[in-house]
């Protein structure tokens, strides 16, 4: 199969672009080039890129487009992590193994810093990778569960916009909430 750079014809291209990892693994794989907002170039296998609904529809909408897909909302670091995750998911699609998948997902998440996790969320959202978004949201929720308000603010880098009086009133109102909070 020729790479898309050599073939400007369109109709056959689009059919090839539909994700069929099972049948395509045997054939030589086509690469898709993604460009992050900080101008880094990522070459990924087509099957991986088609996991990104946004990229997929990019090709569906404009099959004649050049090969480089610009991702203006996405920086290189979270993008590389997202690609890494999706590569593995493709393997599990071909050979379903729930236990292994669970294990991989757990390991993938635990080794990431808080910032990495939070940074990946808008990327997963922009690229419309529902499964990843789901596990990321859960992982973040798990990390802030039972943490102090200060911890949560710091986790998300949120500034406290309550006045001292407002905060004191809210804290009085919710005095009970301070039970069962983990040490930071």
């Amino acid at each position: 199969m020729s790479s898309s750079t050599d073939s400007p014809t369109l109709t056959t291209e689009t059919t090839q672009l539909s994700p069929q990892p099972d049948t395509e693994t045997a054939k030589p794989t086509k690469k898709i080039t993604l460009k992050s907002s900080d101008n880094q170039i990522f070459e990924v296998e087509e099957s991986v890129a088609m996991e990104f609904a946004t990229v997929k529809s990019f090709f569906e909408d404009s099959p004649s487009s050049t090969d480089i897909v610009p991702l203006p909302n996405v920086t290189a670091k979270p993008l590389s992590q997202v690609i890494e995750f999706c590569k593995e998911q493709i393997k599990f699609k071909a050979n379903p193994d729930e236990a292994q998948k669970k294990k991989y997902n757990a390991e993938f998440l635990t080794e990431k810093s808080d910032k990495d996790l939070v940074d990946m969320i808008p990327v997963a959202n922009y690229l419309e990778i529902k499964d990843l978004l789901d596990v990321l949201n859960q992982a973040v929720a798990d990390r802030i569960e039972n943490k102090s308000v200060e911890y949560v603010r710091n986790f998300f880098g949120i500034d406290n916009d309550f006045t001292a009086e407002e905060e004191a009133a809210l804290r009085r109102e919710h005095a009970w909430a301070y039970e069962g909070v983990d040490e930071d």
Binding site: K115, V118, D119, I121, P122, N125, L133, N137, Q138, V140, A141, D142, I144, E145, N146, K147, S148, V149, V152, R153, F156, G157, I158, D159, N160, D161, F162, E167, L170, R171, H174, W176, A177, Y178, E179, G180, V181
Partner: peptide, 30 residues
């Protein structure tokens, strides 16, 4: 500063278990 849109924050918060400390705490964040 991490600026997550509200709809994404909402999804994260919806994953918190029905436990008062977690949700109660989160109301005080901002």
């Amino acid at each position: 500063i991490t600026d997550l849109p509200d709809c994404l924050l909402e999804e994260i918060l919806s994953k918190l278990p029905m436990r008062s400390p977690a949700l109660g705490q989160c109301r005080l964040v901002c």
